[in-house]
Design a protein around this nucleic acid. Structure first.
Lengths: 333, 333
DNA sequence: CGTCAAAAAGGAAGCGCTTCCTTTCTTGCG
DNA sequence: CGCAAGAAAGGAAGCGCTTCCTTTTTGACG
């Protein structure tokens, strides 16, 4: 292993100067700085991150917190999509991404300690059904945290987050249904304890009201395929005249579609469906889903940048950013 | 921040003894060990990982290498499924998972240096289309590596890997088609530079030959939906009498299904389809796919355990394990 | 009860880097 | 040409932990 001392020796300077040169400190004469850089290059020197962390008290790495219960749908949910952005953005900097699992049986205090010991400068949390208690828990942790998705407690807690414009997206979705001439419009929700669900429900409701259309056909589900199927059946039973439905994610749409097929309803002839997310599922099913796309990738990278800001200027927060959604027109409306 | 010295002081022992107690070294008297443990508990002590790494020269963390080009299908491919197993297994130990991105434009040498500087004790690689050059590259890195998927070079390289029994799985898939009375059986392959593809092709071919059925209807694709659609069309054009097809993953099956639908072929009435992987897609499409399930989760955790073995006993390797696949009967045959 | 080997505990160095503080080198100006 | 002030470089301490080596304690046995 080649150390900074080796570099310094080769460059003919002290270790101190070598360190400064490597870190671009201005007080080093350009000539020497170059010598150090060259020496580092020829020797293939890479600073030992452990030593650096120890000396600096900083780690240049951020954590992505994943509840053990959520691991099971990394692939399904929007999680993986946003993870892309996170991974890319982290990689582009000099930071490292550490995955921290919040074990199911772990006590709060233990988790908090684990987190603060996890050599990370900050943490990111994707807010999902299983994570709803985290904001409150982490609010008094020493670690800067940024959420993807507005925490329900965002009003009284000093939290930073990034989110899509769920209200606006849902409004657009409903608008699409109305424009298609639908008048009896239902909604299949995700877990109600999530901010996203509430926001989307609000957007849907607002739009319908604005058009003087009833907004009573609400079926609650859980963002999963099975739940979507059940909820669709429930809606059909409650009001067979339903001719439009807004489903809060693609996975539930797949379930709803199956129910509709088995009940002999043709989409989009008999009934229009607008989904949310635009994941792989959206083009894998038949008909392909008209859906509200979230800028997952951007959200992911934005989250990383926001966290970085929060780490460098802890008092400037909380940071809260909302990104617009996009309509993807396909065959289900 | 509470340090080991604080603990030692409270427990009334030296830092050395405290360290030993914390690490369960046998030469410390049970009485004192307990005192130290208690002190640590009351103080909420967590060893500083940076200091520990520096002193031990070990990091207790492993890397998951992801090529930048692959980030885009974390959700689609089997990647996320296997990642679950990895994450769980790593979390269960005292290790940490670090995601290391292999940037697209990065030179080999730079990447290697980056990797060895990334405070990890070993690395894992999911072998995919974009990773085929990694085994050769990493073979002379100082870092222990385990692959998911047999590298093509496995014969002449000293590599460790875990894999599904792709040959056997493909054989079973073909067998399913034959049993369903199909006699003109095609295959849609993934990227040919991958070991999995070659293994599955072999299994398919072997089975057909054993039954005296022609194995010439091969269409090459890329494991993606669009590729599957195109390949299916190609097969249909080459031989309209085709009545069975083995598709090497679910995503391509979704594409193939779309083509079949647009050509007016009904699955499974006119043509049977057997897929591979059993991801979410398999139940989202219509008809639901009969598919060969890979034990992704197990593969992931096995990979971590294998890597651990490789780290602790570098000379015992290479380790190579193959896990059986499982048939999941649904509606496409 | 003394001796000595084994067990237990402690002292201190050191992992590789940063950074405070001191020393040495430059430079501008009288 | 000499001096002071600022720039540049270096010495050395220290981040929190492990571990080698030494010292102290323990206890079995003569």
């Amino acid at each position: 292993m080649v150390t900074l001392d080796d570099v310094a020796r080769l460059a003919g300077v002290s270790r101190t100067t070598a360190s400064r040169a490597m870190n671009g400190v201005a007080t080093v004469k350009p000539i020497r700085a170059q010598a150090v850089l060259n020496a580092a290059e020829t020797l293939g020197f890479r600073p030992n991150p452990a030593a650096r962390s120890l000396a600096r008290g900083r780690h240049d790495s951020v954590a992505l917190i994943i509840p053990e219960t959520d691991i099971w749908d990394i692939g399904n949910s929007f999680l993986s999509a946003a993870m892309q952005g996170v991974i890319r953005e982290v990689a582009a900097s000099e930071q490292q991404l550490v995955m921290v699992i919040r074990a199911a049986g772990e006590t709060d205090e233990k988790f908090l300690r684990f987190l603060s010991a996890s050599h990370v400068d900050g943490a990111m949390v994707f807010l999902e059904a299983h994570t709803t208690e985290l904001p409150r828990l982490l609010s008094d942790a020493a670690v800067p945290v940024v959420y993807l998705g507005r925490p329900l407690e965002s009003d009284d807690l000093d939290v930073s987050y990034v989110d899509s414009d769920n209200v606006g997206g849902a409004r657009t979705a409903a608008e699409l249904l109305v424009k298609a001439g639908r008048r009896r419009i239902a909604v299949i929700t995700g877990s109600m304890e999530l901010g996203v669900t509430q926001d989307r429900l609000r957007g849907w409701s607002e739009c319908l009201k604005a058009h003087g259309i009833a907004d009573d056909l609400v079926a609650h589900a859980d963002f999963l395929q099975g739940g979507g199927a059940v909820a669709m059946a429930e809606i059909l039973d409650r009001d067979p005249t339903v001719d439009g439905v807004f489903v809060m994610n693609d996975l539930m749409s797949a379930g709803a579609l199956a129910t509709l097929r088995s009940r002999g309803r043709v989409v989009p002839d008999d009934l229009s469906l607008v989904s949310f997310d635009d994941t792989v599922i959206a083009t894998a099913v038949e008909p392909r889903l008209t859906t509200i796309a979230q800028p997952f990738d951007e959200l992911g990278s934005l989250m990383v940048r926001t966290l970085r800001d929060l780490i460098t200027q802890p008092d400037a927060g909380p940071f809260r950013v909302t990104l617009p959604t996009k309509v993807v027109l396909r065959d289900s409306v």
